[in-house]
Simulated assay, not measured.
Amino acid sequence: MDVQLRQLRAFVAVVDEGTFTDAAILLGVSQAAVSRSVAALETTLGTRLLDRSNQRVTLTGAGGRIVTRARRVLDEVDRLERIAQEARPELRVGYAYAALGKHTRHLMKAWAVAHPAVPLMFVQSNTPTAGLSEGIADIAVIRRTLADERFDMASVGCEARYAAVDTEHPLARRRSVRLEQLTRYTVAIDKRSGTTTPELWPATMRPQTRTVDGVDEWLTVIAGGQAIGVTAEATANQNPRPGVAYRLVTDAPRIDVRLAWWRDDPPPCLDTLLAMIRELYSAAPPGLPRQRVPMVVPPRARGRH
Rank of each mutant, 00 (worst) to 15 (best):
D2R: 10
Q4K: 06
Q4V: 01
L5N: 03
L5S: 04
A10K: 08
F11C: 04
F20G: 07
T21G: 01
D22T: 03
A23L: 01
A23R: 03
A24D: 06
I25C: 13
V29C: 15
A33G: 08
S35G: 10
S35F: 13
L41H: 07
G46Q: 11
L49A: 12
L50A: 06
R52Q: 07
N54Q: 12
L59N: 04
G64N: 08
R69V: 14
R71A: 07
D75V: 12
D75G: 15
E76K: 09
E76Y: 07
E76V: 14
D78G: 11
R82Y: 06
R82T: 15
I83G: 05
A87V: 11
E90P: 00
A99C: 13
L100C: 05
L107D: 06
K109A: 13
P116Y: 02
V118G: 05
P119Q: 06
Q124G: 05
Q124E: 15
S125F: 01
P128L: 02
L132F: 08
S133C: 00
E134R: 08
E134M: 07
I136R: 06
R143M: 00
R144K: 04
L146P: 00
L146C: 00
D148C: 03
D148W: 01
E149L: 04
M153F: 00
M153D: 00
G157N: 06
G157A: 04
C158S: 11
C158E: 12
D166H: 09
D166M: 08
H169R: 10
R173V: 15
R173Y: 14
R175T: 09
S176K: 10
L179T: 01
L179K: 04
Q181I: 10
Y185R: 05
A188F: 03
I189Y: 01
K191D: 01
T195G: 00
T196C: 02
T197K: 02
P198Y: 06
L200G: 11
P202S: 15
M205D: 14
M205R: 12
R206C: 08
P207E: 01
T209V: 09
T211C: 04
A223Q: 10
G225W: 14
Q226N: 06
Q226G: 05
A232K: 03
A232S: 11
A234C: 08
N237S: 11
N239K: 12
P240M: 09
P240T: 11
R241Y: 13
G243Q: 07
V244G: 05
V244L: 06
P253G: 03
R254D: 12
W261Y: 04
R263D: 09
D264L: 04
D265Q: 08
T272H: 07
T272R: 02
M276E: 13
M276D: 15
R278W: 03
Y281Q: 07
A283T: 07
A283I: 02
P286N: 10
P286Q: 08
L288E: 10
R292A: 14
V293L: 08
R300W: 14
R302E: 14
G303L: 05
